[in-house]
Amino acid sequence: MDTSIFALDNAWLALLLKVVAVLAFFLVAPLVMGYMEHKVLGHMQARYGPMEAGLGPIKHGVGQLVADGLKFLQKEDIIPARADRWVFALAPGVALIPAMIILVVIPFGPGLWAEDLDTGVFFALAVSSVSVIGLLMAAWSSNNKYSLMGGIRAAAQLIAYELPLVLAAAAVVVQAGTLSLVGIVEAQHSFTAFGIPVPYAVPQLLGFLMFFTAALAELSRPPFDMPIADAEIIAGHMTEYTGIRFAFFMLSEYAGMVVMSALATVLFLGGWYLWPGVPLPSGWLGALLGFAITMGKITTLVFVMVWFRATFPRLREDQLQRFSWLILIPLALLQIVVVAVFKVLA
């Protein structure tokens, strides 16, 4: 399908539906992924994870994050006395909103997208950089040395890892020939390497790994979680936050995980097609299947992120920076050159 299912005659209705869909996904998916993180992390550590909180008859901790959300909502709103009030108050929003906005351009299945921008990839990557400002705002306005250190580390790290992220995506764009995310999925559907249909992850394995690593660093996930190193600087830029503002930061982390995994799925893993060349049935069944396939791929990538969190210690910032500037960026540039050469020859 080339048109979104929201392309209705009544533009206002279409807009309303799009907003509702994006919001609904934005609020539900991170909760599900958060639950998966709790349980998977628990079982990897030979324990159960949350078990008592439940929704109705289902126990096994399914209601844990809902309970957490309610808990955060009813907390006292504390702003430190010497903090910069307005900056402090707005920072969580600035960190959270970009994740929501990127969801607008990501396709989840045939016809299941809100907007298909011609510059989809560019838009997504540009918007994701805005959340860095939210972190810096939080760190500086908290009037706390630990927060400041966390913010400075975050700024350095996120800027360093923007480049491998963008360059890896650029290699995909060169291969697909379009910046539109829907276009990239369709291009992968008809892509063959030496006659075998494969998603971009296979010939551009290096690019895929780099994108994934850079995404981990963008989200401050272990092993790149020096900005939030719990044992050292408590919670980095989030130290002084409590209540719903802290919940916003947490939500932005999980939403970011979902969004980055979705981007990786679309760019490298073939989007909503099970395998390039395998067509989907048309109509509602196809849309449903496509959505399920996309969610399956996203869940797998989020699982790998959680797996990394359980296993790896933290990299120190200078090692982090060295890794990015001295290893990832040269490799990403090399990847682009190779892809361009092959594109011209083939």
């Binding site: 992390l41 550590q45 092993p223 190193a229 044992a231 969190r309 296993t311 210690p313």
Partner: peptide
């Protein structure tokens, strides 16, 4: 030691 460096799993195994 692992916990301080960010490896959150060995501490659970050690306590087991």
């Amino acid at each position: 030691f692992g916990l301080e460096l960010g490896a959150i799993t060995p501490v659970f195994f050690a306590f087991r």
